[in-house]
Every structure is written in C-alpha cells, then in structure tokens.
Amino acid sequence: MPDVSLDDLYGPSRPPAGEVKLLESRVRPAYLRRLDGESGAQLWSVLQAVAQGLETARVVFDLYPLLWVIDANGDAWFAMEECWDVQTGRLAGLSQRDPGLRDPRWEKTGHPAMLMDDPSARIGGEIAFHGRHRAWMITNASGRYGYRPGTALRHLEAAAALFALHGPRLRPKFAAML
C-alpha cells in the first residue's frame, strides 16, 4: 500500500510530541506483539473474556495500561505498559503509575519503546474497558502520538478498523486536541 494511503488512513508518521527518555529509546517491551491474524485473535479472546465477566482478567486491565501504536509502515503494535529496573536493565513488572506505590528504581516503557529504530509513528493510544458499557474502547490517550496537530477521529476509526480486521472489535473514543 503506498504511503499516501497510509497517511490518509492513520495520519502521517511523525516524531513524538513529547520527550522520549533514555530507557524508552533502549528497551522494547518484553511482551510486545505486532497485530496480525494470530495475535489479534488471541488478544480478542482475552478482551472478550473480560467483557463476559472474567474478573481475574479484568483486574489486570483495570490496573495496568494496554498500549497500541501504528508505525510508519502501517503496522499496529500492542503491549502492556511495563516497568523496567534501570539499574539492572531487567523487566521488573507491569507499569505502576500510581505515584504512591512506585519504586524509584523503575521506569516505565511507553509508546516510543514499542517502535524499533525510529520513534516516529502515525497514531497511538490505549485499549481500555468501559465498565458501564461493558465494551472495549480504543482511545488516542497518548501524549506523544495521540494529540498532534492533524490527528483526527477518522484516524482513530481507521485504527479501530485495522484491529477489527484481525479480531478485536473496539469502539473509538477520541479526545480532541486542545
């Protein structure tokens, strides 16, 4: 598919709007997956289990962010936000965003860590469960890839369509840029 179509679908590939810390430029999430038929079906089976009431799976997604991003090639990637020990360079656990619970040795891997050599991407955000609607949402909740000038609802809708093509049916929840 020519780049012009990818630009139209998901927006142009651009550098992140905010800072990329050293850890995120050196570490890739240990459990990063590229969206394809297999990974999409596996992901959807887990997300469906949550929507159907499996609380032991829901607790993970209620506490820890599931990130997604579309890279320059138009490939979608997804991963849980991870914590790494910056002293040992080893995976320490899942992201602990709550300031009251964090360990100062840990840093989190955000969206830029999901991109290999070039931190540019088209759009990114989070996949989150809406407890009232009992539905999975795809959002543009990424400070670095979700609210850049020109990023529009139609780009998020195209991302949702890409996920749906491989299994996960996600409702777009778009927050407009200030």
Binding site: G18, L23, P104, P112, Y147
Partner: peptide
C-alpha cells in the same frame, strides 16, 4: 497528583498531556 511526581519518567510526562485532554473533555 502533579505535585506527587517528584522524578518523572517518559510515561509520567506523557500522562500529563493525556490528563490535560481528559480534563478538557
């Protein structure tokens, strides 16, 4: 919340922008 982040990593800084937009909504 903002005051409590004494040593922000990349995700913390990203989170500020997300929160700003969620509050805007």
């Amino acid at each position: 919340y903002l005051v409590s982040i004494a040593s922000p990593d990349g995700v913390d800084l990203d989170r500020v922008s997300v929160l700003v937009h969620q509050l805007n909504a």
